[in-house]
Design a protein around this nucleic acid. Structure first.
Length: 416
RNA sequence: GUGGGUGUAGCUCAGUCUGGUUAGAGCGCCAGGUUGUGGCCCUGGAGGCCGCGGGUUCGAGUCCCGUCAUCCACCCCA
């Protein structure tokens, strides 16, 4: 038997409703914040991600779906959305037309990781990006979009975690300070962290190794090494969050996995996801557009994992799949039934009928399962009198309706 | 890439430790109980190379080895 690829998953009709609700909630909310949708290809030149995300990150070094095209150019299925969007912004000079560009995107991403709870190799993200606004108030606005979306989707409880990772002016010095502190304590670090101490010291901060926790707490904190501009920016972000009474927790160990983040980084976590407790992550990336060959344009955004969100929200109740079920008992009435079906469908009603000559009881059960509001019954008696019997399934009441009125009757009842 | 759990009906799972007639349950599906009426209830039916391959044995769903799949965790992340 041919099965779905490891780490991929069919979204079956039963669960698609939950996805559509979340997606339409996203579109409606983002529109209120002036964001327009952008759709970029799901594969790009490998170089885009290597340069954008950072060659030393785990994503680029070991988790990308990279393959050679027929002309030997290296292509990669996008592991995240931001790089492709930035590429499109630069390529089409979107910032010239709109210096405060707001976009959102929605679609599949690919990372070749070991699957586990809430983590797939093809997963879906909702993504919001705002370009060209450096003011801290836009950081808070983006956070409001993120939290507003979680509320609209119906996520019961979550926690906003916040940090600042500095910028090109102050982070390099901090990284060196941190590296020095780590070198002085190499003995207490595990092999992974020893390696990171050299390659990417920030990543040591979110190590979960129990024996490293005491040391990590004692390491210099980035909040104490921010430059004036970053410190003021972060203070203003926090002040505005307080202004809006948005609860948050500052975690100086929150360093995100992508190299391009500057200043504000944030994450939203929720229980019920096991170890994969992060449902949303984002931050500012003021150097990325320039790094990718564009103008010196600031950016900030977030990405949200739909699988994880849908999983937390749980299974929705079954939906009505039929307004009118046509129960046919007399083969001679088939043409009449099919013509009525066509007319009602043209009027916008969901209509189904039995094609296999099943018994009435069987057809009624089917109508019930589809949660049909009405059953229009056509048997020998009705055929002889040129009428239909219409049953209201919820009220268990029936009426006799003449042929001439049946279509109009059902259209009005089912729409009302 | 590393570690652990689990693979039996469409789905969720008993049965495996202590090997032995035709492998079970609930849900779902189909039909009947009502000459033409759903939900609740009752009855019946269909549907299983017990993941796959090898081994031990008179005999394997059950024990052993391998393999694949899947889940959870680590790493990392949405």
């Amino acid at each position: 038997m041919i099965r779905a690829i490891k780490g991929t998953k069919d979204i079956l009709p039963e669960e698609v409703g939950a996805w559509q609700r979340v997606e339409s909630a996203a579109r409606a909310l983002f529109a209120r914040y002036g964001c327009r949708e952008i759709r970029t290809p799901i594969f790009e030149e490998t170089q885009l991600f290597a340069r954008g995300i950072g060659a030393e990150t785990d994503i680029v070094s070991k988790e990308m779906y990279t393959f050679a095209d027929r002309d030997e150019s290296s292509l990669t299925l996008r592991p995240e959305a931001t790089a492709g969007i930035v590429r499109a912004v630069i390529e089409h000079n979107l910032m010239n037309e709109d210096p405060a560009l707001r976009v959102y995107a929605l679609g599949p991403m690919f990372r070749r990781e070991r699957p586990q709870k809430g983590r797939y190799r093809q997963f879906h993200q909702v993504d919001v990006e705002i370009f060209g606004v450096a003011a801290p108030s836009v950081d808070v606005e983006v956070i409001q979009i993120a939290l507003g979306f979680l509320e609209a989707a119906g996520l019961p409880d979550y926690e906003l975690v916040l940090n600042s990772v500095g910028d090109a002016a102050c982070r390099p010095a901090y990284v060196e300070t941190l590296r020095a502190a780590l070198r002085a304590n190499l003995a207490t670090l595990g092999p992974d962290s020893q390696r990171r101490a050299e390659t990417n010291p920030l990543r040591v901060l979110d190590s979960k190794a129990p024996e490293e926790q005491a040391l990590i707490e004692s390491l210099p904190k980035i909040s104490e090494h921010l430059c004036d501009a970053c410190r003021e920016h972060f203070a203003e972000v926090r002040r505005q969050l307080d202004l809006f009474a948005i609860p948050y927790r500052v975690d100086h160990r929150l360093v995100r996995g992508l190299d391009y983040y500057t200043r504000t980084t944030f994450e939203v976590t929720s229980g019920a996801l096991g170890a994969q407790n992060s449902v949303l992550g984002g931050g500012r990336y003021d150097g990325l557009v320039k790094d990718l060959g564009g103008p010196d344009l600031t950016g900030i955004g977030f990405a949200l994992g739909l699988e994880r969100l849908v999983m937390i929200l749980g299974a929705p109740k079954a939906e009505r799949r039929c307004d009118v079920f046509l129960a046919l008992l007399a083969p001679a009435g088939r043409d009449k039934a099919l013509l009525l079906q066509r007319e009602l469908r043209a009027a916008g009603l969901a209509v189904l009928t039995d094609h296999e000559g099943r018994g009435l009881k069987s057809q009624m059960k089917r109508a019930d399962k589809l949660q049909s509001r009405f059953v229009a019954l056509l048997g020998d008696d009705e055929l002889a009198k040129n009428v239909w019997t219409v049953r209201d399934m919820a009220g268990s009441s029936q009426e006799t309706i003449e042929d001439a009125r049946i279509a109009a009757y059902l259209k009005e009842k089912a729409n009302g």
